[in-house]
Write a protein that binds this DNA or RNA. Sequence first.
DNA 1: GCCGTTTTCGGCCCGACTGTTTTCAGTCG
Length: 572
Amino acid sequence: MHNPLIASLFEELAALLEIQGANAFRVRAYRNAARTLESLSESAADIVATAGRSLTELDGIGQDLADKIKMIVETGALPQLEELRAQVPAGVVQMLRISGLGPKKVATLFHELGLTTLVDLKAACESGRVAELKGFGKKTAQSILDGIAHVEEAGSRVLISIARSAAEAIVSDLAQVAGVSQVSIAGSCRRRQETCGDLDILAIAEDSSLPMDRLERHPLVEKVLARGETKQRVRLRGGIELDLRVVPVESYGAAMQYFTGSKEHNIVIRRRAQERGLKLNEYGLFRGDEYVAGRTEAEVYAAVGLPFIPPELRENRGEIELAEAGSLPQLIELADIQGDLHMHTTATDGAATILEMAEAAKARGLKYIAITDHSKRVTMANGLDATRLRQHWRDIDKVRGQISGIEILCGIECDILEDATMDLDDEVLSEADWVIAVLHYGLKQPREQIMQRLLNAIRNPHVDAIGHPSGRLIGSRPSADIDYTTFLNAAAEHGVMLEINSCPSRLDLDDIQAAAAKSRGIPIVIDTDSHSVNGFDVLTYGVDQARRAGLTKHDVANALSWAEFSRRLKSR
DNA sequence: GCCGTTTTCGGCCCGACTGTTTTCAGTCG
């Protein structure tokens, strides 16, 4: 029983309790526990099994929740959850996904009309029965119908790459509106989360109607969902929703802080304000009615006794304690990256030649790259056997003579086969400058087999790094079942580097495991896995992921200069 | 349900917008 699964049971429990009208803080306690489990690097089951340790050492987990987790770990089930499921059908919980429907209204629909599925709900809206309920009405019924359609078609969250490009397009458009002196991205997009459920944009303007009018006419906007004096909500084509908030200049920092979140981070910040006799809201910091600060975010943080905290860290996962101690990491930046150690060429499934890739990398300021085409197991991509690989390396060697100012490593992305052997034998691997070992096939194998494969690769003396370790594709393919504690300890022991793959649909390692790798001193490589000359564009997402993990340039091997990196490679 | 050098009980962040209402509950972020 793994942490995300336990977390999902608590999330479900929280939703069920909410519909039953349970105390909101009790509901929150379950949600907090779910979050704690999700962001935990080690397995809760391991803590349960370790003598002398208790789950109550975790933030927000008391005796009751510790017992429940133990029950789940040991029996795979939770009687309380079974009971609630018997009382509230799954279709009723699903109704919570509809925008505008919260626990109270869902409970009314369930109890008053006996609705238990989205299909029933749709029919009840269309027949007019929903509009007759107390507290409902025609508009509510229509908005539920719209919400059902949206849930059916849109899925929910979009990748950060899609979210960012939409948000940046709208920001640059709104920046041109007369009277708009400042406009920025806030919310989860500014925190650079892997996916965004919606977008938040903040603007300073004397007259809020001007940017709002402009937004309504933007080609990306499909529908205006709400509009008031300071806030406007629209739905973009493709389904994602966007909030525009217009604030006065003296509130801009407070509003940026407020709307960047995360919710959990902000709760702690506002509590700190309270403790200092202050009130913090999106308009500023106030002592009584007196405005104290709020023009910049730094002012807000200073008023609660903290230095500015980078948005990527604002998850209430220890950043406030680090800030308080003056130990916030100096996060790595895109410009720190000196090399890229994972890319493909026309030799396998890439679209550009060795020389074209080298030139493109050089044009972006990179000082060294590794060409890492696929090994033979990846037949679909025309993977290389030993003979073709050695020829490919000779071709790379020729290109070295045609371009200066960039070093090119003869590398390989070698598959770790289902039987835990490497796709190429040690002899040819020993001739490589750089070997990145990866799982492509058999990702659904049981944990024991997956771990055997990863550990064998880590112990292979020719393997320099493990690429996209989990194999997940965000929103479509789940991770392989990895015991991260064992995996990270082995990588640390054998001096094997771990990749943060920058592809927006991979971002693998994730932030939690990358932070756990950092804590063990494992060097991280942030790679693009480019398949074309434009593939390097994604590097920014990998760097963002590293920032969310709290990595500095000293934690990242390809932030080293070529001289230092090549020295480290030789010393392995 | 959690948490605590003010506390083991009584707190637990804060405001905008909507729809259905005659003053506010529900939802959202």
